[in-house]
C-alpha cells in the first residue's frame, strides 16, 4: 500500500470520508445505515457495470457499449418473461450468455482486426441500442412472483437500513472483481497489457486471450447489471440507461484508475460509485439544488483527480531523476 500507485485511491477515499463528514455536519440524518443502504441499492447496477469497466480501462481500453447492453438486457428479459412466459432465471441465463458473447465478439474484433476499442465499442453501442428498440420501443412492465421475491429480499442492518439483494450482489461483484484483479494470472495480465502491450507480449502474456476475456467480462457484467436494473425498476425499457457508460468511466477514473491503463484498483471504483451516490443523496437532502449539480460536481472531481494523477506521476519522475543524479545505487559492489 506504500506504493505511489495507490496514492490516487487513498486520495479518493479521503475525499469521500471528508465529504461524508461534512454532509453529516450539515444534515446529521445522513449518518445512518438507512442512507448508506439506499445509496448502495440505488447505484447497484452502476457499480456492477463499473467493475467490468475497471478491467477494460486497466487494460488500456474503453467500453462504450455497456449502457446499451444494459438497456437491451432489460428489454430482452422483460419481453421473455412478460410475452413469452419464460421463467426469469431462464431469461437471466439467456441474457447473460448473449451479453457475454457480444463482449467477446467486440474483443475479437479489437484484437484480430486491430481496430481501436473506442471505435469497436462505439459500433457495439449503436448495435445493442438498436437491437433493444427492435425488441420493443415501449416500456415493458414485469409482474412475476419471482421478481417480487427478489425485491423482498434484504438484510436488515443495525439502525434500520435495508441492504437489498441487488446491493449485496454489487458488493459480491466488487469482492470477486478485486480478487481476480489482484490475485489471478488473468488480473496480472490485464495490468501488464495496460502498461505496454508490446512489452507484455514479449514477456509471454497471451494478449489475444486476455483482450477477449476482458471484453467478455465487461459484456457479462453489463448483462448482470441489466438484470439488476430490471429487478430494480420492475420493467424493461429500450431508452433506459443512456449515457450510463460515461458515469461508469467517471466512477473508475475518480476511483484512481489511470485512463491510460496499467494502474488502479477495483476497490477504488467502489469509492468512485459511493462519491457519485453521496452527491445525489446530498442534493435530495438539500431539496433546493437542481439535480444537475451532480453532473457539475462530478465534472469538477474528474478534473481534480486527473490533475492529481498527473501531479503524482510528475512528482515520482522528479524524485527518480533526483535519485539518479545523486548516484543513489545500492548493491552490486
Amino acid at each position: 500500500m506504500k506504493n505511489a500507485r495507490n496514492l490516487p485511491f487513498l486520495a479518493t477515499l479521503i475525499v469521500f470520508l471528508v465529504a461524508y463528514g461534512l454532509c453529516t455536519l450539515q444534515f446529521p440524518n445522513m449518518f445512518s445505515t438507512r442512507v448508506i443502504a439506499n445509496l448502495l441499492s440505488d447505484n447497484a447496477f452502476l457499480g456492477i457495470v463499473a467493475v467490468g469497466m475497471t478491467f477494460v480501462i486497466l487494460s488500456g481500453g474503453i467500453d462504450l457499449s455497456v449502457g446499451s447492453v444494459i438497456a437491451f438486457t432489460s428489454v430482452f428479459v422483460a419481453v421473455l418473461v412478460g410475452s413469452f412466459g419464460l421463467h426469469p432465471l431462464t431469461a437471466f441465463v439467456l441474457a447473460l450468455v448473449l451479453s457475454t458473447l457480444f463482449g467477446a465478439g467486440m474483443g475479437l474484433m479489437i484484437r484480430y482486426l486491430s481496430i481501436p476499442p473506442f471505435v469497436v465499442t462505439l459500433a457495439g453501442m449503436f448495435l445493442a441500442r438498436g437491437a433493444a428498440y427492435l425488441v420493443s420501443t415501449q416500456s415493458v412492465p414485469i409482474t412475476h412472483p419471482f421478481f417480487e421475491t427478489i425485491q423482498g429480499l434484504y438484510l436488515r442492518l443495525p439502525g434500520g437500513g435495508r441492504l437489498t439483494a441487488m446491493a449485496m450482489l454489487m458488493l459480491v461483484v466488487f469482492a470477486v472483481g478485486a480478487l481476480v484483479a489482484s490475485r489471478t494470472r488473468f488480473g496480472a495480465n490485464v495490468y501488464a497489457l495496460g502498461g505496454n502491450e508490446q512489452s507484455a507480449a514479449l514477456m509471454g502474456v497471451p494478449v489475444g486471450r486476455t483482450i477477449i476475456g476482458i471484453y467478455a467480462l465487461s459484456g457479462f457484467l453489463s448483462g448482470l447489471s441489466g438484470i439488476a436494473y430490471t429487478i430494480y425498476t420492475s420493467s424493461g425499457y429500450s431508452l433506459a440507461t443512456v449515457g450510463i457508460e460515461l458515469d461508469a468511466i467517471a466512477a473508475v477514473v475518480i476511483g484512481g484508475t489511470l485512463l491510460t491503463g496499467g494502474t488502479g484498483l477495483v476497490a477504488g471504483t467502489l469509492v468512485g460509485i459511493l462519491i457519485q451516490g453521496l452527491i445525489q443523496t446530498y442534493i435530495v437532502f438539500d431539496g433546493t439544488l437542481s439535480s444537475w449539480w451532480t453532473k457539475i460536481v462530478i465534472g469538477i472531481l474528474l478534473f481534480a483527480f486527473i490533475a492529481l494523477q498527473r501531479a503524482i506521476i510528475w512528482y515520482s519522475n522528479r524524485r527518480l531523476a533526483d535519485g539518479a543524479s545523486r548516484g543513489e545505487l545500492r548493491g552490486a559492489a
Binding site: A192, N196, S199, M203, G204
Partner: peptide, 16 residues
C-alpha cells in the same frame, strides 16, 4: 522490455 507500472517482483514472475 519490462513493465514500469508493475512491481519488480511482478515483472520477474509475469506469466509464470
Amino acid at each position: 522490455n519490462l513493465l514500469e507500472n508493475l512491481t519488480v517482483a511482478e515483472n520477474l514472475y509475469l506469466g509464470r
